[in-house]
Design a protein around this nucleic acid. Structure first.
Lengths: 350, 350
DNA sequence: GCGCATACTGTAATCGATAACAGTGAGGTT
DNA sequence: AACCTCACTGTTATCGATTACAGTATGCGC
């Protein structure tokens, strides 16, 4: 790879002039430089530029599980938006593990101008430290409630360099309960995600609140806290169907657990929605093709990623000194009714 | 962020000594340096190291569609393997578009030590140029048959710096045909991917070869060349079911098109496998839950990604001068029989 | 006490680009 | 002719680390 010195020598000018040529300034030896550049196939070294400028033209993206279709769509949205502004994407997969996430953040932070992250837990020291260091960040899908170093009681959002792109989890859970209740269900169970993550906690709370608001009975048996994974949904559903008083409907708080839950019902040959109605959270391209087609709470996943990227880029492209007001967006959700929910069967088919 | 000068000053040594300390050499002022480092929270600048060494400790990954579960799994396998060796992942999504891919390769190539790519087409000038530049690369799932700059008739694999991790596409297609034929089908159609991509071409050829080998009739009507996208599968299947002589079975050459095809059959209320049997290529975690459960050709996707990463890392971690023999692996596939295939219905239910 | 090997240390050049600063020359004004 | 402005150019320090090279100190043997 040629360097700027060789170009300068070939064009008979100084390196400063070549640098100015690439910065778009008017230069007398315009043509000679252009000729030298194409002859040598020169292109300025990004690393040298980075060293001088301190900017990397890259953003870090850390998700808990890239094989979850929701996060894949999120990344796709981020990718196309970032690329459009000339930023590269550095991807990390935390596998829902806070310690992996911490090492990812540490490894990535030196190479990026900003970070888009769906933190594993809400009390996330590594991410809080990154944010405290002043690097712009966007929390997506999940937020951080308080940094460990934060004695003053302010939470991470009080910081000036963090935006947040969430989804209305509580409203989604409430929509699910409302729908099931309107069909006549009263024994409604929930399979929640980890309660120390935003969507886990918020969907859980939204579910319980709506149950209480509608005056529906609730018992600990009907509440299963799982892990957002397919196997976790499978196990949790197994526990629910084995209850002496089996619920007639289940709200499953994410897509992978919903698949796991359906798989168990399928394995046990328990009719859906005949015996148990199921509502999932997050749509899947193939949800209409499932047996039965899955009723879900839907959001615009690619858009959510693109929004997060736009918020981050807004900071990265801002003039120095410009003060940017942190945003905390909550995107809407909607109920998509398909075949996995129906009126409860009075006989309680087993 | 502190720099090496500040550490050196605080520890009362020269920068060279600090540098040696980080390189693991024995140093007299060991403790003083360690104290200065932790006091300042210093960590060596990766950018400065990159500039000096020319290495980036990063690998580029370019896939056609990250929302395709196969590629998501592939990326996951690459990620965990790369991370284990301290390499970052720079991700690009080419959206099955060769011109996007070309700009991705150009943008990424300066930041990475090697590239893992599933090229959009087999005759891919941008990727061929990248490889010709001498940067190590691994072609995964798809290969490049000939570089445009390659007048000598040697193809890209003759180059010393490229490995290839494919899957036995032809065998997979043959397995599908065999299975359908053994059930009694004779009017078997195919929905292929783009014939200028490796899996598109190889599965197509494997299908036709096996049909010919078994002496099954073939007509142009039964061959649909599509685009590996869900919408493409939908359209292609629409054309097939509208044929005057509707086929009784269809081999769909990838997972997304299979979903599209099933969606059409679902929309038109055409019974599967009653009226049409369907075999897809590439399993999906939810394939057993589809209506009907989808019969597929399966491979080990995460392993394929991990294998590609290992082959690349082998080159990146090699001592200079060490000659590494290029590998061209073809991973096995298997047939997973589920509910979407059955004996043909003699009445030709419509 | 001298010579010498060993073990560590500092100085300075280097990677490749950028930008502050100080020219240089052409053209216009008086 | 003297002077000024304007537009461009070259020199050089800088970003932060690495490393070749030269240098210093220590211990050992004689």
């Amino acid at each position: 790879m040629a360097n700027i010195q060789q170009v300068a020598r070939l064009a008979g000018v100084s390196t400063a002039t070549v640098s100015r040529f690439f910065a778009g300034q008017t230069v007398r030896s315009h043509e000679a430089i252009a000729r030298a550049v194409s002859l040598l196939g020169y292109s300025p070294s990004l690393v040298a530029r980075s060293l001088k400028s301190g900017r990397h033209h890259a953003i870090g993206v850390i998700v808990p599980d890239i094989t979850n279709p929701f996060f894949a769509s999120l990344v796709k949205g981020i990718e196309s938006e970032a690329r459009g502004s000339g930023f590269e994407l550095i991807l990390g997969n935390s596998d829902e593990d806070a310690s992996i996430e911490a090492s990812l953040v540490a490894a990535i932070s030196q190479r990026v101008d900003g970070l888009i992250i769906a933190p594993v837990v809400e009390d996330d020291a590594a991410v809080a430290a990154f944010i405290a260091a002043g690097t712009p960040a966007v929390l997506v899908d999940r937020e951080i409630v308080s940094g460990t170093t934060d004695a003053g009681g302010r939470n991470a959002h009080a910081r000036r360099n963090v935006d947040c792109v969430l989804v209305d989890n509580a409203a989604g859970a409430a929509l699910a309960v409302e729908h099931l209740s309107s069909l006549g269900h009263t024994a409604i169970a929930v399979i929640s995600g980890p309660l120390d993550s935003t969507p886990g906690r918020a969907r859980h709370a939204g579910f319980l609140d709506e149950m209480a608001r509608l005056g529906l009975p609730m018992s600990d048996d009907l509440v299963r806290v799982s892990d957002f994974r397919e196997a976790g949904g499978y196990t949790a559903m197994a526990e629910l169907v084995d209850l002496p008083e089996r619920p007639t409907a289940v709200f499953v708080a994410n897509n992978l657990m919903a698949i796991g839950a359906l798989r168990l019902l399928n394995d046990r040959q328990i009719p859906v929605p005949g015996s148990v109605s199921v509502v999932g959270f997050d749509d899947l391209s193939f949800a209409p093709l499932l047996n039965p087609p899955l009723t879900v709470i839907r959001r615009l996943d690619v858009l959510q990623g693109a929004t997060a990227a736009r918020l981050l880029l807004r900071r990265l492209l801002a003039k120095p000194g410009e003060d940017i007001v942190p945003e905390r967006l909550s995107l809407p959700v909607e109920l998509v009714i398909r075949g996995s929910t129906s009126r409860p069967n009075p006989e309680g088919t087993r």
